[in-house]
Structures are given as structure tokens and as C-alpha cells.
Design a binder for these strands. Structure first.
Length: 937
RNA sequence: GCCCCGGUGGUGGAACUGGUAGACACGCAGGACUUAAAAUCCUGUGACCAUUGCGGUUGUGCGGGUUCAAGUCCCGCCCGGGGUACCA
């Protein structure tokens, strides 16, 4: 039988589906292994050749682990909420679920063609009410919990209420919104403006329901707050920080502005330290961990109070360099700082207000673009250095951010480059307090040197000085050591239709959660997918969008990362109607052992889901602190575009090698018209009407195209579609070729040319099992030592490669093995059956087919991975490479048992040595057993 | 600016802990089979020099260093990709 991949692949895909070959169930006593792909957003364009790269790798690993005896959980699903389907709905009126279903079906069809070993019984879709019920359920828990820093975990709000009732909040160490009491006093006149947010039990019990709820909101892990948010007018919604880059939306690249809005937030900052600590316990790439570390942005320092001159007010600043306090020659407040109005004298307040107004009107984008532009204004006020009472002028400038630290800094121009630039610009004094730099040209920011001009810390090293100042500040009660994080709470509301509805209603303007029994709150139909005339989100269009009692429901929906934050847990028990997932399931499957996906999720999904998991861990539901033990980012597959060169103002095209002799413009040409960089000129003329009369300047009778590596995109005509390749070469060849392309984690260009080599290999492999007439034929003769050596060498290498996810070298290893067995004309069952098992994770259809022809009734996926035995590889001689002064000169075959001294003698005795010794005596002979000999002369 | 990753033939890449640089494949050249083509098989293929033969020199972005030995380790640069951007 000829190798007919079309038939074989269809046959086994059907077999796997009908026999539920990859269905997994809990099997106590059998070790589990959880392999997960980042589930895709099903876009209308379908899969291109870059998408399946990670899926193939994870599939190979899953199949390998099954052969190794593991009970493998390998599910797939869809991150179904997304902007494209909704934008399409806005344009056409088609409900996004219709578009999504269609795209899901297409994705499934494409994935099935590749022969993945997913347990499709566990499929989840984030837009499925049975799934998002648990997203809503978790939101309710977040709302009903607060973070206790003392306990280091989330606790129920009911417990917090008991504490408040019994003893107020003085002893509570909770994660709260900074300056929440200040905002509350502004909103609710029942609270005094000078209130510091501390209340006794008696105070608490005297508060009205509304006041109590308003206070509690600042403790909840999901909370509603008026805050500066990223507003994207084109998308008509708010975005989280990770969804914005350089002032533009990551999706769609639309401008984003800052706006005050009331939104739902998740208090992810409560978990900042744990999110940081957890990174040390997981196997992720350094670059990914660094990205998260930077995003979390922990910095240690101190909060110090500076009294304002002629006032009772004290200005609180945050600094990581308390050692430089005597070098602080001015203070800077952010333009939003509450003290500005209070401290600026009448003589200056006009100019200050004008500056603030100017800053406010600058858009976020302008601000970004003008980072280097220095601006600021003197408030006219002074504060005093708390140690020596020296007056320091207070400025306002927009290089200080209101959202970080206390929104105010002590500027130390000598040792901070931003302060330095500011001081130079406004002619403010620069006082050196750390020796070791030259501050005439630039600031000296290093934390290295001895303190000078600094009273009680003079002569100390920076590190010691920092400790000493913090201790002194503590002692005097004018500040304390403090840790700050760059991480911001996650904005959780979207003013869009296509997302999870919040399980929230409002009574007298106060939010309340729905009962669990009313979940899921399903997404209602609307007449249009646009905001209302009054600017309310699309859900405000839904009829009867209220509770049974008539209270209005929340009209925002949840963001994209809501549904993807806990999906790996739901896969463990996807059909459970009573629980998110059962205790039994999570105790068995624990967490993800290997997670493969793109690194664009570094500061989004991968932080949110770690947070989500830690919260569920605090609830006692997740059993591991970290959801993804090992994570690998597959590289991007870039497009390899073909280029042709058109002579200026003509329809003549010049071949690549001759193009520099003419003035020309470069044009992208469809990959389908090019083979091995040679253009099919006939097809080119038919490609577009305007090219029908195209002329060519050829080299050696051919038109050679140039090429460029760039992103895969329709507009560059370089998109390669897996369906066509599979139709032509089969899925097994396609899988192998994707892996053969290069290391999984590396980005690389797709070049279809090489696929022929892999296809050749597959057919060569097939021929090992067949005679010249293509009849299946294996011999039962005992294998020879040489054949066994090849097999075991291969087992060893394949196992090592797969364990370190080096799939490209594994493919080479198979090629070498088949080349060598082919040379020996090996057709021994004892060799070839093991080889089939080895290759089955890579080329599953082919190996199932041959396995069956070998006479097995059961799927090869149930076989056991062959055991490697060192004994077949032992040799009694070794061919030593012999170097002279490090240069390899010749090889010398010697018995392996020879000791170093004997080897040295043998080398000196070798005839070739004389030539390189040239009569000299060697100074030294290095012998590394079974590695190398180096003669030093 | 800062952080991370990378730079090896015409191309994709291999060399895992320092130990024969260029495995495996593509492409290219030559050959076999064939009326011919496809398919298949064989040989060669980093560069330069020498080819009558063995061969020699050089070579992993650049410049130094450590070592018996460096693509691999150290120092200083250059280039490409990604992340980040006044976070005090």
C-alpha cells in the first residue's frame, strides 16, 4: 500500500473521536500531568501557520507523557468574548454569539485536521452561561472579601463587620484604597474633611447603612470607585493598564485618554507581595518573570513628613533614598495634590492654578510625547527639613504622578536625574550629599559612596545611612519605613455588550450582589450593540434589565481577562453544575504542569490568573498557590514575504540579482506565485488585471524574487494557511515541519520550502516497513548489535530532547535514525515497533496505521515508551580527536579502558604525531577520557 | 534611557555541563535510473589557497582577556528583536 496520508489521517482522527481515546478521568494512584495551551480567541480569519506551533508542541508533550504512564489532562476551549465579534455586530446587527459560534466551528475543524489529542469532552467557552456562572460567582466572593495583611490572606467581609462592631478599625491591617477617607469625606458630608479614616466601635454602630457600605467598599477585593481611568472613545470603553501601550489601545490602536469615572476594580494590589514572591517558585523564563517583577514594581523606602512653614500641615513624601534628605533642595507636588490650594499664598496661587489648568488640558498622548519637556511652577510655600529646619521651596510639576507613593517627593537633584534636569531648568540649587560622582554635568544616582554635608550620617555608606535615617525618623515620629508598588488595581468594568454581566443590582445607589441561586445572570438581548443616546453602556438598552424586585442591574460588563482568569480550574471539572470544580478534581489535578502560550500575556492574563488563583487558594478552593508550574512562550512565526522589483514608471519587473542596475520600486507578491524564490511569470500576469502586460528582465532565464521577514499579514501576501499544507503533505508532515523549523521559544520566519525534506523523511520512514512493492513487511529475526545501538541511541536522545522541549533536534534525531536503519536495510520488528512508539507523539496518524499493520489491536497511544538501555551503547574503543595546541589534527582509535598515561604513550607513538611535534618534546598532554586529547608543544 | 532575548554557511538551524564548529534539512552543482518527466538513489557543497596526492590557512557580529582548549566563561563595544517609560 502506498503512503496515503489523506486516508490514514482521516481514519485515525475518526477512530480517536469515536473511541474517546483522549478522554481523561481521575484515576487515584496514577500520576497526573496537566498540559495546557492558552485558549484562543476564535477570530474570523481562522488559524494561520503560527497558531498551531504551541499546540503541536503541547500535543507532542501530552502524548509523550501518556506513553510514560501519566494520566494526562489536555483540554482546549475558547476565549470567546472579544472585540472583533462585537464590532462586527455593531456594523451588521449579527449577534456576536452567532459570529463566535461560526468561528469556533472553523477553529475546531482546523484543529481536528492536525490530529490533536485534546479531551474535547472538557471544552469550555467563556461566553457559555454554564461557564460564566462561575466567573460571576467568583466576583461575588471578591466583593465579599477583604485582604488582611496580618493574616496574609483574604477574609470574609462578615468577619470584618464583626471586628468593626466590636472594636472599630484601629487595629485592622487591611488592603485599602489610599486616602479613601479623604474621597469619602468629599462625597458624603456626614464625614468631616479632617477625618483620618479611623473609627471606633461606637462610631461604626452609629453610622447609617449607606455610610457603612461606603466605608466597606474601600476594603472589598472587588469594589466600585470613582477614579482616573483609561478611556478609549473609539472603542467606547474603559481599558485596564495592560490593555494600553504608549497612550493607545493594544487592540485596534486607538487613542486613550484619562478620565474620572465610577468603575468596578479588583484589588489586585493587595496581592502584590505574594505575586512577587510566587515568581521564585515557578519555572518561567527570566524575561517573563522580569516583566512581571517590573510591572509589580516593588520599591522599599520611607514615608517622611515635612512640616509646612507657617502652617500646621505636614507634607508626606515617599522616597527610596532617605539617606539623601540633606541634599533635598526643593519639594515637588503632583498637580492633583490636595495641599496645593491649602499652602499656596495669594501671591502665587493664580500662576499655580494656571499651570494646573494647562497640565489638565494636555491629553495623555501629548504628555507621553513630551516626556522630555520640563514644566512646573513654584507654589510660593516652603516646608522645613524635619532634621535641621532648613526651609525648602515647594513646587508643582507634572513629572510627579499623583497615583504613586504620596503624590509628592523631596527632590534631590544631585542624586536623581529627573530632579537634576528640573533643577537645571529652573536654576534651583544642587547639593551633593553622596561622594563618588561628578555632579557638574549629571546627577550621581548610584547607591554607592560616603555621605557628606549630611549632619548625623556624614561618613556613612549609603546603605547604612538609609537604615539610620529610617530609624531616626521612626524615633521622632515623623515618618516610617514603607514599601510601595507600581502595580495598580485592575479596572474591571467595560462599557461593552459582549462580556459577562455583573451579578450586581443597585438599591438607592448602593450596589448589592445577586444571590448565588440567581446565577448565571444571562446576557440579555438588545436592539443594538451601541451605547444609548445618553451614553450608557449597551446593556442599558435591554428590556427589563432589573431584578424581580425591580432594582436596576449593573449595565457594565466584565473585561476579557475575567473569563480567562480561572479557566484552567474549570477544565478539571467542566460539567459540574453545583460547584466551580469539585474538591476531588482539584485535589487530583492540582495545577498546570506545563503551560504553553504567547508572551504578549506577560502583564495581563498571566498576572490576573495568578491573582485569581491566589484568591481561590485563600478561599480553600485552589490547592496550589501558583496556577502554572512551568510556562513556555512559543516564539512568533513571522512571514517571509516575496518581493518583486518594478522599474520606475513602467510595468517591467527586474529580477533580484539585476535590480541594482535600475531605478526601481519594491512590490510584495503573493507567495503562491513563487517557488524557491522563482516567480511564475505566467501566473503573475494573471494575478491582477494591471499586471497582464507585465514585462520581465530575467537572469538566466528566470525571475528571482527578493524576500523580507516581517509579520504575517494579508496585506503583505505572506500568510500561509495550514489547511493547504495539510492537504498537500498531510498533518504528520505538517506537525513535524512546524517543530523542525527551530527552537520552540525562538521567533522565526516561516518558509514552506523546507517542508519537502520532512515529507521525504516521512515517506522514507514508511518504506522501512514496506518492501519494494509497497507490501507491509517486517522480519522477526533477532536484531543485530548495530541495529540495537541505533535504536537505543535514538531512545536516549528523543527522551532527553522532549524533556527539555527541544522538538527540533528530536526531529533531526529521527531523520538520522531512519537514515542509519535504511543503510542497514533494517526491517526487524524488534527495532521498528519501538521506533513507531518513539515517533508516535510527533506523527500520530502514521504510527497508528503502521502499529495496526504490525498486528496490534489497541491504539499506539496505549503503548509504553521504550526503555533505554545503556548496555547497547557500550563500545570498547573510542576514536579520540587529537589536537596539537588546541587544533584538531587527526583521529586515533584507542581501547576505552586505556589509562591517561597509556593514552599519552599511544599518541606519541602514532605516526601522524611526528609531523606536528617536529622533533620537539611535548610540554604537556591533556587526556579527557572518551572526549579529547590535546598535546601542548 | 533602563531591563530581557538574540547575532554561527546562500537559507532554517545543530553543538545540553568549555573538549572534533557547521549535525539534520533546504537550496545549489554533478551523476545514476528513465524515451522523457515525476519520484527515488549516489556524490560534492563555510571561505580562501593548493590541487598530483596527502593537505594547509582561516572561520561562530567587533575588540580585548582567562584557559592545555572558547560559538560556549569574563570585560568593553556594535547590530537586531521584544518589554517598559518620568514609579521618586
Amino acid at each position: 500500500m502506498e503512503y496515503n496520508f489523506l486516508e490514514i489521517e482521516k481514519k485515525w482522527q475518526k477512530y480517536w473521536l469515536e473511541n474517546k481515546t483522549f478522554h481523561s478521568e481521575i484515576e487515584q494512584g496514577r500520576p497526573k500531568f496537566y498540559v495546557l495551551d492558552m485558549f484562543p480567541y476564535p477570530s474570523g480569519a481562522g488559524l494561520h501557520v503560527g497558531h498551531p506551533l504551541g499546540y503541536i508542541a503541547s500535543d507532542i508533550f501530552s502524548r509523550y507523557k501518556r506513553l510514560k504512564g501519566f494520566n494526562v489532562l489536555h483540554p482546549m476551549g475558547y476565549d470567546a468574548y472579544g472585540l472583533p465579534a462585537e464590532q462586527y455586530a455593531i456594523q451588521t446587527g449579527t449577534h456576536p454569539s452567532v459570529t463566535t459560534e461560526k468561528n469556533v466551528a472553523r477553529y475546531r475543524e482546523q484543529m481536528d485536521q492536525i490530529g490533536f489529542s485534546y479531551d474535547w469532552d472538557r471544552e469550555v467557552k467563556t461566553c457559555d452561561p454554564a461557564y460564566y456562572k462561575w466567573t460571576q460567582w467568583t466576583f461575588i466572593r471578591l466583593y465579599n472579601h477583604w485582604y488582611d495583611h496580618q493574616a496574609g490572606k483574604a477574609r470574609p467581609v462578615t468577619e470584618l463587620l464583626n471586628i468593626f462592631k466590636a472594636s472599630g478599625n484601629a487595629d485592622v491591617s487591611a488592603a485599602v484604597t489610599p486616602n479613601w477617607f479623604h474621597e469619602l469625606a468629599k462625597k458624603n458630608t456626614a464625614f468631616s474633611p479632617s477625618w483620618k479614616g479611623v473609627f471606633s466601635a461606637a462610631d461604626w454602630n452609629s453610622y447609617h447603612e449607606k455610610q457603612q457600605q461606603e466605608i466597606l467598599m474601600n476594603y472589598r477585593l472587588a469594589y466600585l470607585s470613582e477614579a482616573m481611568v483609561n478611556w478609549c472613545p473609539q472603542l467606547g470603553t474603559v481599558l485596564a493598564n495592560d490593555e494600553v501601550a504608549n497612550g493607545f489601545s493594544v487592540r485596534g490602536n486607538h487613542p486613550v485618554e484619562r478620565k474620572m469615572m465610577r468603575q468596578w476594580f479588583l484589588r489586585i494590589t493587595a496581592y502584590a507581595q505574594r505575586l512577587l514572591n510566587g515568581l521564585d517558585s515557578i519555572e518561567w523564563s527570566d524575561s517573563l518573570k522580569d516583566q512581571q517583577k517590573y510591572w509589580i514594581g516593588r520599591s522599599e523606602g520611607a514615608e517622611i513628613l515635612f512640616p509646612i512653614q507657617d502652617s500646621d500641615l505636614k507634607l508626606s513624601i515617599f522616597t527610596t533614598r532617605p539617606d539623601t534628605i540633606f541634599g533635598s533642595t526643593f519639594m515637588v507636588l503632583s498637580p492633583e495634590h490636595e495641599y496645593i490650594e491649602k499652602i499656596s499664598p495669594a501671591s502665587h496661587i493664580g500662576a499655580v492654578r494656571a499651570y494646573i489648568e494647562e497640565v489638565k488640558n494636555r491629553s495623555e498622548r501629548e504628555r507621553m510625547a513630551e516626556v522630555k519637556k520640563i514644566s512646573g511652577v513654584f507654589t510660593g510655600a516652603y516646608c522645613l527639613n524635619p532634621f535641621n529646619g532648613k526651609p525648602i521651596p515647594v513646587w508643582v510639576a507634572d513629572y510627579v504622578l499623583s497615583g504613586y507613593g504620596t503624590g509628592a517627593i523631596m527632590a534631590v537633584p544631585a542624586h536623581d536625574s529627573r530632579d537634576y534636569d528640573f533643577a537645571k531648568h529652573f536654576g534651583l540649587p544642587i547639593t551633593e550629599v553622596v561622594s563618588g560622582g561628578d555632579i557638574s554635568e549629571t546627577s550621581y544616582d548610584a547607591k554607592d559612596g560616603l555621605m557628606i554635608n549630611s549632619h548625623f550620617i556624614n561618613g556613612m555608606q549609603v546603605k547604612e545611612a538609609i537604615k539610620t535615617v529610617i530609624a531616626r525618623v521612626n524615633e521622632l515620629g515623623i515618618g516610617k519605613g514603607m514599601v510601595n508598588f507600581r502595580l495598580r488595581d485592575a479596572i474591571f468594568s467595560r462599557q461593552r455588550y459582549w462580556g459577562e454581566p455583573f451579578p450586581v443590582y443597585f438599591r438607592d445607589g448602593i450596589p448589592y450582589m445577586l444571590d448565588d441561586q440567581d446565577l448565571p445572570l444571562e446576557l440579555p438581548p438588545v436592539d443594538a450593540y451601541l451605547p444609548t443616546e445618553t451614553g450608557e453602556p449597551p446593556l442599558a438598552r435591554a428590556k427589563n434589565w432589573k431584578t424581580k424586585e425591580g432594582w436596576p442591574l449593573e449595565t457594565n460588563t466584565m473585561p476579557g481577562f475575567a473569563g480567562s482568569s480561572g479557566y484552567y480550574l474549570r477544565y478539571m471539572d467542566p460539567h459540574n453544575r453545583e460547584e466551580y470544580f469539585s474538591k476531588e478534581a482539584v485535589n487530583y489535578w492540582q495545577n498546570v504542569d506545563l503551560y504553553i502560550g504567547g508572551d504578549e500575556h506577560a502583564t495581563g492574563h498571566l498576572i490576573y490568573s495568578r491573582f485569581w488563583n491566589k484568591f481561590l487558594f485563600d478561599l480553600g478552593m485552589a490547592v496550589c498557590e501558583e496556577p502554572f508550574k512551568k510556562l513556555v512562550n512559543q516564539g512568533k512565526i513571522q512571514g517571509r514575504s516575496s518581493l518583486v522589483y518594478r522599474l520606475k514608471a513602467s510595468n517591467t519587473f527586474v529580477s533580484y540579482g539585476l535590480k541594482d542596475q535600475y531605478e526601481h520600486t519594491v512590490m510584495h507578491v503573493d507567495l503562491g506565485l513563487v517557488s524557491n524564490d522563482v516567480l511564475d511569470t505566467q501566473a503573475f500576469r494573471q494575478w491582477r488585471p494591471d499586471l497582464a502586460d507585465a514585462g520581465f528582465i530575467l537572469e538566466e532565464g528566470q525571475y528571482i524574487c527578493g524576500h523580507a521577514v516581517e509579520k504575517m499579514s494579508k496585506s503583505l501576501y505572506n500568510v500561509v494557511n495550514p489547511d493547504e499544507l495539510i492537504a498537500r503533505y498531510g498533518a504528520d508532515t505538517f506537525r513535524l515541519y512546524e517543530m523542525f523549523l527551530g527552537p520552540l521559544e525562538q521567533s522565526k520566519p516561516w518558509d514552506t520550502n523546507g517542508i519537502e525534506g520532512v515529507f521525504r523523511f516521512i515517506r522514507k520512514f514508511w518504506r522501512l516497513y514496506h518492501d519494494e512493492e509497497n507490501n507491509f513487511r517486517l522480519s522477526d529475526e533477532a536484531p543485530e548489535a548495530a541495529e540495537l545501538r541505533i535504536l537505543h541511541k535514538t531512545i536516549k536522545k528523543i527522551q532527553e530532547d522532549i524533556e527539555r522541549l527541544s522538538f527540533n533536534t528530536a526531529v533531526s534525531t529521527f531523520m538520522i535514525c531512519v537514515n542509519e536503519l535504511g543503510e542497514l536495510k533494517c526491517s526487524k520488528r524488534a527495532i521498528l515497533e519501538d521506533l513507531l512508539i518513539l515517533i508516535s507523539p510527533y506523527a500520530p496518524h502514521l504510527s497508528e496505521e503502521l502499529w495496526q499493520q504490525c498486528g496490534h489491536n489497541e491504539s499506539i497511544t496505549k503503548a509504553a515508551f521504550p526503555l533505554f538501555s545503556e548496555s547497547y551503547l557500550t563500545e570498547n574503543t573510542f576514536k579520540y580527536p587529537v589536537s596539537f595546541n588546541g587544533k584538531m589534527r587527526f583521529q586515533l582509535e584507542l581501547p576505552v579502558e586505556l589509562q591517561a598515561a597509556e593514552v599519552q604513550n599511544a599518541v606519541l607513538a602514532a605516526t601522524e604525531s611526528a609531523k606536528w611535534l617536529e622533533g620537539r618534546n611535548p610540554k604537556k598532554i591533556i587526556v579527557v577520557h572518551k572526549k579529547i586529547i590535546n598535546v601542548v608543544v
